[in-house]
Structures are given as C-alpha cells and as structure tokens.
Computed example of a mutant assay.
Amino acid sequence: MTKTIDLTLSVTESPQALANHAAKLFVERCHDAIEKRGEYNVALSGGHTPKLFFKALASAKIGGSIPWEKVNFYWVDERCVEPDSEQSNYRLAKEELLHKVSATHFYRMKGEINSEKAADEYESLLRRHFQLGEGQIPRFDFILLGMGPDGHTASLFPDYDGIEITNRLVTDQYIRKMESWRITLTLPVLNNARACVFLIQGKEKHSVLARALDLLSERTLPAQRVQPTDGKLYWIVDQDAYEG
C-alpha cells in the first residue's frame, strides 16, 4: 500500500521570519475556510516558539484582515495548572493574541480541575461543537504544533500510552520526568486536521528535527506520527534548527 503525504518544508532565516511566515499561512487558510465553510476552527499549542507567532497574528499588518468573530479557538494540550499560571498554554495565547484582537470564541482546557474530568469535559465539548456522531472525529482547519527535544508533540510523549489511544478525542496522562499531569488531543484528532503546522526553532532542535523529517526511518517519535490522512502537513523551521 502506498501512502502519500502532502508535506511542505519551509526554512526561514530567523525566529521572527518563522513567526511571520506561519502567521501569513494562518491568515491564508482562515480566509479559505471562512469562504468555504463560514468559520475557522483552530487548535493552539503553547511554549516559547508560538509566542512570536501570536504576536505576529495580533499585528494589524498581518492579522488585520481576519474576521475574528468567525474564528473558534481550541487547545491542543494543556498543563494541569490554574489558567493564570505562567505555565498555562491558555494564558500565553490570551495575553499575546486573544486579548489583543476581537476574538470572542475560545474554549480552553480546564487545567485547574481533575485531569480525567477535564479530558472528559473537553471531549464532550468537541462532540457538541463539531456535532459529532458515534465514532466521528473533529476536523480542525488549522492545528498548531511544536516538538520537544525528545520528539514529543502536543502532550504525546515517547514511551507513554497516550500516543496509542485511538478511541478517545482527548486524554490525560502523568508525565513522570516532568512531574506533571497533562491534557491533550489524541493522535486521531491531529491526523484528521485539514492542516497541521509544526513550528521549530533553535540549534538544540536540529538532531531531533533531522530524525523527524527522515520519512524513510521508523516512526518512533510522536511528531513523526503526525501525518494528516486528508490534509496538509507543514514544517516551518528556522535556519538554526535546520542546519544545527
């Protein structure tokens, strides 16, 4: 059986250029989604790299044409912390983007409550909002992703059960090396997206990036297993990450 992956690799000269490139892609796909379906369903990640992306989107120069009232913001994953914690993925997006534009539809994962309950509640929310029947999976227009030095993406880590879950949309798990609970979308949700967009920067990511982009190697890294079945896969990386 032959499998074709619709993959685009873009190498930018700096982290700021990376952010601008990704933000322009976001805008382009936003207008296309709204023209075709009347809304734009997005799932955001946290971390250092998305911060510049959020700032670029919040600028009038890049994000000024977005009809924010038609954009629905969800989250890829969340740390089990209060929403005002500095570790909160929601807080980062709120401060750098959502409170700087006229966005009104955003649906955070509740990291401050029991993780299993939070995962169940978020799955129920997705089923309602996307009007899903039994066995159906939400189809996001744009999923923003990063990758850790161990190859994890979202909160799907190597050697943890979460990456193998196929009967849930959202799950929780305790990450021992980080001593923290996480809530995350599962791999089937990521792979049902119209577009998954990885943002990668920094020399420290070079070796794991080289492994992730080796399409002929065994898919041992969670990031390698993000391959949309009927969508586009974008890797947007800065020169430091690409060249090492």
Results as ranks from 00 to 15, higher is better:
123 E>I: 02
146 G>E: 04
233 L>E: 03
17 A>V: 09
241 A>E: 11
117 K>G: 11
41 N>G: 14
120 D>N: 13
190 L>A: 10
151 G>Q: 04
241 A>D: 06
121 E>I: 12
11 V>P: 13
156 L>K: 05
187 L>R: 08
182 R>L: 00
68 W>T: 00
70 K>G: 12
226 V>N: 04
228 P>V: 07
189 V>C: 07
243 E>A: 15
225 R>I: 01
114 N>T: 13
223 A>S: 04
174 Y>L: 03
209 L>T: 13
158 P>G: 09
183 I>S: 01
229 T>V: 14
241 A>G: 07
149 P>W: 11
76 V>H: 07
226 V>E: 07
22 A>Q: 08
13 E>R: 13
238 D>R: 11
187 L>G: 10
183 I>W: 01
157 F>H: 02
53 F>R: 03
117 K>I: 14
158 P>L: 07
53 F>Y: 12
179 E>N: 14
202 G>Q: 05
130 F>W: 00
34 I>F: 02
242 Y>K: 15
157 F>R: 01
208 V>D: 10
107 Y>I: 08
56 A>R: 00
182 R>K: 07
116 E>I: 11
176 R>N: 10
231 G>A: 06
153 T>S: 05
214 D>P: 03
25 L>E: 06
182 R>T: 03
35 E>L: 12
207 S>P: 15
223 A>F: 00
173 Q>K: 05
13 E>N: 11
239 Q>N: 13
224 Q>C: 03
171 T>H: 10
179 E>P: 08
206 H>T: 10
52 L>Q: 14
217 S>R: 13
54 F>Y: 08
101 V>M: 02
37 R>T: 11
168 R>T: 04
39 E>F: 12
133 G>C: 09
6 D>E: 15
212 A>Y: 10
229 T>N: 09
157 F>D: 06
69 E>C: 09
146 G>M: 05
36 K>C: 03
166 T>E: 15
85 S>A: 11
101 V>H: 07
107 Y>D: 10
108 R>Y: 11
131 Q>P: 00
134 E>G: 08
4 T>I: 15
118 A>H: 00
182 R>S: 01
199 L>E: 03
70 K>E: 09
105 H>T: 12
169 L>Y: 02
137 I>K: 10
21 H>K: 10
204 E>Q: 15
58 A>H: 06
232 K>Q: 11
96 E>S: 07
73 F>V: 03
190 L>R: 06
14 S>H: 01
12 T>F: 08
56 A>G: 07
159 D>M: 04
183 I>H: 02
37 R>M: 06
184 T>E: 04
91 R>C: 10
130 F>R: 08
192 N>F: 06
61 K>S: 13
179 E>G: 09
50 P>K: 04
55 K>G: 02
124 S>W: 14
206 H>D: 05
156 L>N: 06
170 V>N: 11
200 I>E: 00
237 V>I: 09
28 E>W: 03
237 V>H: 10
141 D>T: 04
157 F>M: 03
95 E>R: 02
38 G>H: 05
57 L>P: 04
23 A>Y: 03
8 T>D: 15
136 Q>R: 13
2 T>G: 13
23 A>E: 01
218 E>F: 10
26 F>A: 02
9 L>A: 12
123 E>V: 04
234 Y>V: 04
151 G>R: 06
109 M>L: 09
157 F>Q: 05
17 A>K: 09
101 V>R: 05
219 R>V: 04
34 I>E: 01
185 L>T: 05
232 K>T: 13
